[in-house]
């Protein structure tokens, strides 16, 4: 067994056009990317850069025109494995309203395990556990439409945890949320990755979310143009700038300070790191 949970090898993909046999211009052009077991990978890019298509390929909802996608060694093009693959890779989408199926929170979380044919008593256990993990246990009897956006997304995440998938792909889960909701969801995602060891793939266009990941891949126009640790990726400012992305505000602050002759140690990208670096800078010059 390799240490990669998902392996994407030289994948090309284009959607079908309206007319028979017509193919639209490719949205993925030779993408190669591995997702390592237990890591937190962020995929950064603009709308239309091909990020969401990548999700569809990873859980066998679409199949590559060229190249291969394998999930735990299973080829996604093998139709017989589709179900098995989807039980390993869970997906949370952008719009929290459109992915909740049942009209009671706990019933919705149970939906996945029910589809997998899990024993009733075991479902109960998993649902309670999943709801506690995302801090929504007290809301188990509530109606989803009365919850806030952040709470709905956490219910959706619980729905995936209850399926006991090895990997969870979140497609811009915070795009429609307010700052409180965004923080709730990000805290939950980090907790899943750090404490449960679930592999997380976060598709986002928020830099300050991407810096929290172990690794960042930047997509533009169907290609992966940068991939590495947040520090590596965000230090390549010129390349980021070319695709209309920026570093985090903290990163920009360091850049501005550098222009003013203040060279902070390391390349802090988050406020926490910045404070540490700033203190160190002061400490070195008493």
């Amino acid at each position: 067994m390799s240490e990669n949970i998902i392996e994407i090898k030289d994948v090309w993909f284009s959607y079908d056009g309206d007319e028979e046999g017509e193919k639209l211009p490719p949205v993925l052009k030779g993408v190669t990317l591995d997702v390592k077991k237990g890591e937190f990978l962020a995929i950064l890019g603009h709308n239309g850069s091909g990020k969401s298509t990548l999700t569809r390929l990873c859980n066998a909802m679409s199949h590559p025109d060229k190249g291969t996608v394998t999930v735990e060694g299973m080829d996604t093009s093998d139709e017989e494995l589709e179900y098995e693959i989807r039980s390993r890779v869970g997906v949370v989408m952008q719009n929290p309203d459109n992915q909740i199926v049942a009209s009671i929170v706990e019933e919705d979380v149970a939906f996945g395990p029910e589809n997998l044919g899990v024993e009733p008593a075991l479902i109960r256990e998993r649902v309670d556990d999943a709801l506690k993990r995302v801090g929504m246990y007290d809301y188990r009897g509530h109606e989803p439409h009365k919850l806030s956006g952040g709470q709905k997304q956490r219910v959706a995440i619980a729905g995936v945890i209850a399926m006991r998938t090895d990997c969870i792909i979140l497609d811009e889960p915070t795009a429609m949320l307010d700052p409180i909701g965004r923080k709730e969801v990000m805290d939950t995602i980090l907790d899943l990755n750090r404490r449960l060891g679930i592999t997380v793939v976060l598709i986002t266009h928020y830099m300050n979310e991407a810096v929290l990941a172990d690794r960042v891949a930047v997509m533009d126009n169907g290609e992966i143009i940068l991939c590495g640790t947040p520090k590596e990726v965000f230090s390549d400012a010129s390349k980021l700038c070319r695709v209309g992305l920026d570093t985090t505000q903290t990163g920009m602050l360091c850049e501005e300070l550098r222009k003013r002759g203040v060279m902070l140690p390391g390349t802090p990208l988050t406020p926490g790191d910045f404070i540490v670096a700033f203190q160190k800078y002061i400490g070195d010059r008493p």
Partner: peptide
């Protein structure tokens, strides 16, 4: 919704259990 349901391994009533 159809996409989300498929992602969550929905394939009709066959083999489905209830909580």
């Amino acid at each position: 919704l159809a996409y989300a349901m498929e992602c969550r391994c929905y394939r009709g009533g066959a083999g489905r259990t209830r909580m």
